[in-house]
Amino acid sequence: MLRTDRIVGGLAILVAVFFIWRTTLIEIPFISDPLGPKTFPVIICVVLALAGLGIMLKPDAEPHWPKASGFIEVGIGIVVFIAYAELLPVLGFIIATCIAGGILAWRLGAPPVQAAIAGIGIALGIYAVFHLALGLTLAVGPLGF
């Protein structure tokens, strides 16, 4: 029977092998200490591979995966966050945060109007506390905030 943990263990071994290969590509400079920059990463990879092997051999019970809707919600969250990170320097802090905060509140179950108000409230609240009161630099947009 294929269990999630067997895949996890297998992936850990693959990652370990991949990084051991990457380690062999490191060029050792002319002057180096006896151990050099390669040994410790290799030790780590061996530990990682052993852990992966252990997990493959003795997998835990299946995790509680969410239903499809749960994955979709997380997916929406990831998209919102990435868009927020990319648009922050373009739109400026307040506009970007109003939008992102509002969408998140909406996805967590707030009705659309309340969610929009929450987004604006969060943006203005953080702006007031962290920028106006504490002087932290926030991303500046075309409108100057």
Partner: peptide
């Protein structure tokens, strides 16, 4: 539903404040 978006946005503000890097 109002608290968690605020937590997320504050996390972004903090990390952005260190380096200003997307």
């Amino acid at each position: 539903r109002y608290l968690m978006p605020a937590v997320a946005m504050i996390s972004f503000v903090g990390v952005y404040g260190i380096s200003g890097s997307t």
